[in-house]
Amino acid sequence: MDKYDFSWRIIQENLPELINGLIITLQISVAGMAFALLFGLFFATLRFSQYRILNIVSNSIVQVGRSLPLFVLLFWIYYGLSLKFKINFTDFQAGALALGITGGAYMAEVFRGGITAIDKGQSDAAFAIGLNRMQTSRLIVLPQAIRIILPQTVNIYVGLLKGATIVSVIGVADMIYVAQYVSLETFRPFELYSFAGVVFIALTLSVASFAWLLERQLSGKSRRG
């Protein structure tokens, strides 16, 4: 193979398109996160239900959601489900849904972990002073649980952001997708993919350090970071 001549100008020339791709990545990851919060909250609530059957069902769904690779989920929804049941998801919808299911399974665990971490004495005390179940959750347990849940939620978002890079395989026009088709025209795959990679690393690292800061801020000085 001949020596490869680098030509970073290609990035500059295609910058608007690459940025559009990045915006789509952000959009799909945010949409996925919205689904994830919804699913997560729903299944976490079911796990605290007094009906054993609901506990078992939601537990199994969470287990399955956590065990399936995002990649498989993506293909299963986009090609499998759509074709079988004629649902015809757009690529964006399928991507957001797959991200939402994966993220939701993790979020359910985060919610559950946050709520169970609150000492039982807290809710006992709330009942003792005459608050009902609803008030106890809203006024006593949730505000404390948020401190545990919030940093982990941002971590889940980081995971979804990284996961969102693979949605180009079903044709979502994200940054990788743009890099791919521009490199087909210009034969500059290395520069384009590297640029996309560096941008993604910068993005995930900045969100991750935000989570880290949040954790330090919320946990106070009582816990070792």
């Binding site: 990788i176 590297s194 990679g197």
Partner: peptide, 25 residues
């Protein structure tokens, strides 16, 4: 650690498989 925790797998696998071939042969 920061680098490899931040990089998406998709990007990394493309770098290792195609990138190394282009840059370092």
């Amino acid at each position: 650690t920061q680098l490899f925790r931040g990089v998406p797998l998709y990007v990394l696998v493309i770098w290792v498989y195609f990138g190394l071939a282009i840059v370092a042969n």
